[in-house]
Write a protein that binds this DNA or RNA. Sequence first.
DNA 1: TATTATAGTGACCACTTGGTCATAAAAAGG
DNA 2: CCTTTTTATGACCAAGTGGTCACTATAATA
Lengths: 197, 197
Amino acid sequence: MPKIVDKEKMREGILEAFLNTLLKYGFHNSSMTKIAQEAGIAKGTLYLYFDSKESLISTMTKQHFSKVKERLVATKYFDSLDELLNHIENSLLISKEDTEFIPIFFEAFGASFSSPKFIDKYRDFFNEIGEFYAKNLQLLMDSGSIEKSINPVALGRVLVSMLDGIVLHKGFFSMEKDAYEEMVKESVGLFRRGLIL
Amino acid sequence: MPKIVDKEKMREGILEAFLNTLLKYGFHNSSMTKIAQEAGIAKGTLYLYFDSKESLISTMTKQHFSKVKERLVATKYFDSLDELLNHIENSLLISKEDTEFIPIFFEAFGASFSSPKFIDKYRDFFNEIGEFYAKNLQLLMDSGSIEKSINPVALGRVLVSMLDGIVLHKGFFSMEKDAYEEMVKESVGLFRRGLIL
DNA sequence: TATTATAGTGACCACTTGGTCATAAAAAGG
DNA sequence: CCTTTTTATGACCAAGTGGTCACTATAATA
C-alpha cells in the first residue's frame, strides 16, 4: 500500500543537482534551499536522502577521490621507464570534471584544513600514491633501467607533490588546453631525462 | 589636548594577535571577538584599526605573498645551472611561518576560489614567477649550459607548479624536517639531471 | 584642574543559513 | 475508493557572527 521510490536514484539525482549548483555558485553560496530547487524538490525532501550538507559534500568527495586514486595507482608496477612516464602523463591529463572539482574541494574544506583528522586522511592518500611510485622506482633501479643514485622513497613522495602541484594549478588557473599539454610534455621530458640511466 | 596613540604600532600588534588566533583556531573559528581578546582590546577598538575581518586577512596575505615573491624571484638572472638550482633549493626550504600560513590561506580564501577576480590575482602571481624561470632557462639555453630541446616558457611555468606543489604538501602535511630535506635534495637532483646538457 | 579632541568599550542588531517538524500528498493494495 | 504506509513540503527555529553606535575613558593642553 505504501508509496515507493527508488532511493538510490533519488540520491544520484540529488548529487547531480548538487554538483550543478556547486559549479554555478560555489560551495558556500550553495544553500540547501538552492540545491533542493536545482533538484526540483523541497528542502525537507533533501534531508530525507542526505543528513546534512556535510554529508552531501563528503559523499561527493569520497567518490571523486576514489576515482582519482584508481587513476593514479596502477594495478601493477611498470617494467620500463617509458611505461611509468606514460602513466605519469596520463595522470596529468585529467578530465574537465576532475579539474572543476579542485576549487570546489578547497572551498568546501578550507575550514577543515586546521583539523588534524582531516589532514591525516589526505596525508595517507598522498603517501599511498607516493609509496606506489617509490616501489616502482626501486624496481626500475633494480632492473637497471634508471639512475641508481636516487632515494626512491623521497623521490616517489616528491614526485607526487609535483604532480599534484601541476594538477592543482590546472584546476585553479584553468589553463588553455594547448598550453597545458605543452606543460605536460615538458614535465614528462624533464622526468625522463632526470630518471634515465 | 587630545589622546594620541601610535596607530601603526596598534595595527602591527593587532596583526600579530590575529596571526596567533589564526594558528590556534583557524580562520573561521577566529571571531572578531576572539581576535580582539587576544590583542587585549575590545571588539569595537579592532574596528578603529581595521575595517573588517576581510581587511585583516587581506592585509596579512598581501604581506605574506610579497615576502614570498621576493624570495622566489631573484633580482638578477643566474648565469649557471648550479646557481639556478641553488635558488630553487632555497625556494623550497621555506620557513616555519610561511609553512604555517599555507593552510590558513586556503581556509580563509576557500570561499573566494570561485571568484574570477581572486583567481586572476594569483594566476598573475604565479605567471610572473613562471616567466622569471622561463627567461632564465632561455638564457641558460643560449649560453649552452642546459638542454636545448626544451620549451622554456612551458617548462618555466610547470616548474613553478611543481615547486608550489612541493611547498603546499609541506604546508598541509607538516613533514618531518629530515624527510623533507631529503625530498628537496631529490627534487634538485632530478631537476639537475633533467636540465643539464 | 578644566577642557576637549581622540580613543576605547561591549551590548546590541541584522542577516544568513543549516536543519526540524507538523501537516499534506501520493500511491500501492485490499 | 478507502486505508495505510511512505514520501514530500516549506514555514519556522536556533545559533553564530560580522559589524555598529551611544556612551565612557583617556591624556594632552591651557
